[in-house]
């Protein structure tokens, strides 16, 4: 019981909750009672360590998304005083660089479309997107930009589906190659839309603390009866 009281007492002292008389008594005891003083110092050390642990845990959580294990690293070699970028890249590094260049091109294309829509108004954003590219893309854009990309993708997919649906409606019972082609396109577009929007949703939920999931079905205008018989 006394041990527990010590912790309460230490806490009260450190928070500043002791009244002046108790505070004086406490400080006097710290001076005179070595065991008590050691306990107090041990408690303060524990508090400092706990504070460090909680800060690091939060930092780990925050930084986790900022590292990518496949990111190209400099070719540091032991015994090489200069260290960084001193020797030719390994095969793996070259492969990663190639992949990164491809990803960069994709990113530039998406950014160009999102931020300068007037120049690219005819090009649907979905031409630049596929579900595999979303996680990488999400790491490099802000939450607001992700929202914009989602909205643009949704509009583009819906527009594409609208066009295809209209064309099918003009030939509702057609079994000719053209109708079959439209139906196939509709299916592909629908699958792609689901995958891409779900990936963006997932990326948002991981990246943005205030993310409210979008409704992937929202605005989904495909009449699935149009696909019957396909």
């Amino acid at each position: 019981m006394e041990e527990f009281n010590h912790i309460s007492l230490f806490q009260d002292y450190l928070i500043g909750d002791l009244n002046p008389a108790d505070k004086t008594t406490f400080e006097l005891r710290l001076k005179e009672d070595k065991e008590f003083s050691d306990e107090f110092n041990e408690f303060r050390l524990l508090e400092q360590d706990v504070e460090e642990v909680t800060a690091r845990n939060e930092a780990k959580f925050e930084l986790k998304s900022k590292f990518n294990r496949d990111l190209v690293v400099d070719d540091y070699n032991e015994g090489d005083d200069l260290g960084e970028l001193a020797t030719p890249a390994s095969t793996r590094t070259i492969q990663i660089r190639r992949w990164s260049i491809a990803a960069s091109v994709l990113l530039i294309a998406v950014f160009s479309f999102v931020f300068w829509p007037a120049k690219n108004i005819d090009k649907p954003i979905v031409e630049f997107l596929d579900s595999d590219s979303i996680p990488h893309l999400a790491k490099n854009v802000s939450c607001n930009e992700l929202d914009s990309i989602y909205n643009r993708a949704l509009i583009d997919y819906n527009k594409a589906e609208n066009d295809l649906t209209t064309q099918l409606q003009n030939n509702p019972k057609g079994s000719d190659p053209l109708s079959r082609k439209f139906r196939k396109k509709l299916r592909i577009s629908r699958d792609q839309k689901q995958k891409v929007l779900k990936e963006i949703n997932l990326a948002r939920s991981q990246k943005c603390s205030d993310a409210i999931p979008f409704d992937v079905e929202e605005g989904f205008i495909l009449d699935t009866t149009m696909l019957e018989g396909y």
Partner: peptide, 8 residues
């Protein structure tokens, strides 16, 4: 990752 968190 632990090191980077401590560094931060």
């Amino acid at each position: 990752q632990e090191t980077m968190a401590a560094l931060f």
